[in-house]
Computed example of a mutant assay.
Amino acid sequence: MRVQKQTRSPRRQVDGVLLLDKHAGLTSNAALQTARRLLNAAKAGHTGTLDPMATGLLPLTFGEATKFSQMLLDADKEYEATVQLGVETDTGDAEGSVVATTELPAGISGDAILSVLPSFMGEIEQIPPIYSALKRAGKPLYEYARAGIEVEIEPRRITIHALELLDWNGSAFRIRVACSKGTYIRTLGMDLGRALGCSAHLSALRRTRIGQFNVADAVSIGTLETVEPGGRDGYLASVDALVRHLDEVELGEGDAGALMQGRVIRVDPKVCGLVRVYDAATRRFLGLAECMDGRLAAKRLIATPGSVQAE
């Protein structure tokens, strides 16, 4: 008897941004592929990863929105993290192997924690963890770590915009961190422990904000799974959602067509820098362009502007 091979329905063109609230234990790529399957999307990407242990905001991009993912990679971020004192792991979080244990210093308190926070504020140097995807000689650092090879890791300049103590229970404390790109909260947790005189690691991490996006506006995989396929697109923000922080320029039909053909056009010389561009008549988002001395040149345009509407 011949077994008939099942064929999957073809992927469809989906354009937009999905704000996902990732649950613990799920890799960022697994979250992306699950969301892509649920939307039956042809093309998908993410704007930076979260460790499997971490929860919270993971913006996913689909179709034409993938062209603007870099905007969030460079954005400031905000986290809530729980730092467990007395134990340090090789990864800096609860998923790693224990490498050091120490007794908690006598007299440690919420006030003691508050006293060390200011030294981590502002622009500081931070040494990234060996278990990270940063590359050295073309290889991720975690490959050296897994092979037991010691490598020197250069410190990087980062900025901590805000650092607030939210809770303290006698052996662990919870903090809110607003920071620049490139900040490792795992490293911050270990460094805070050392400043207090003991070992430490992250026992929980939740990303609550990236740029202008907040986790309160995100949807979980579980919620998406309960929605009928035809209703899932309703959770997508429009393609221009990632670039709303930029100034906008509206173009008439002739200039819009010329820009889409790659020609440089004249605009108000007061406009400058990177801008988002729309067709004035339809409010269709055309993409990004750069303006200098009254000359507007395409930077990154979407392929099918007729299908992507600005909100």
Rank of each mutant, 00 (worst) to 15 (best):
N214V: 13
A237G: 11
D51Y: 10
L72W: 07
T187L: 04
T27D: 10
A200I: 10
V116G: 03
I221D: 04
R194D: 02
T159G: 01
V275K: 05
Y184V: 05
P155C: 01
I175K: 06
T159N: 11
Q70M: 08
L286P: 04
D191T: 07
S132F: 08
A241C: 04
M71W: 10
R186N: 02
G287T: 06
R2G: 00
R266T: 14
H245M: 10
S69T: 11
I221A: 05
A216I: 11
F173R: 01
V98P: 00
A204T: 13
V243F: 00
D268R: 12
A30W: 00
V271E: 13
L39T: 07
V87P: 00
A75H: 05
V243P: 02
A30D: 15
R206P: 02
L196M: 07
A195C: 06
T91L: 04
S97L: 09
I185N: 02
V277K: 07
V227H: 12
I113L: 08
F68W: 06
A298W: 02
L19M: 05
A133R: 05
E80S: 08
A241G: 04
D191H: 06
L73E: 05
A162K: 14
R186G: 03
L288C: 02
K43I: 00
P118R: 08
R266W: 04
H201N: 07
S69G: 05
A162L: 02
Q261A: 13
R284A: 08
S132I: 11
L274V: 14
H161A: 13
A147R: 08
R12I: 15
F285W: 01
V227A: 12
L251S: 07
T102K: 06
V271R: 15
R244F: 01
V177M: 03
M190S: 10
I302M: 09
S220F: 11
A256K: 04
A145L: 08
Y142E: 02
R176S: 14
L72M: 10
D74A: 15
A35K: 02
G16N: 03
L236K: 03
N169R: 03
E123K: 15
A81I: 07
S28V: 03
Q70V: 10
L259K: 01
P155G: 03
K181A: 14
M121V: 03
P118C: 09
A147I: 01
G257W: 06
F62M: 04
G107Q: 07
S9K: 14
A44Y: 01
R176V: 06
R146L: 09
I124W: 05
E78A: 15
E103P: 09
V271G: 00
N169I: 03
A200W: 06
I127K: 12
Y278H: 12
S180T: 12
A24Q: 13
T223E: 15
V14W: 03
T159V: 14
N29I: 06
H46P: 05
Q4K: 13
S9R: 14
I185W: 00
G110H: 00
G234R: 12
L38W: 05
A216G: 14
L188A: 11
D51F: 05
M71K: 08
V267R: 09
H161V: 03
K135G: 03
Q70S: 13
R206V: 02
P105T: 07
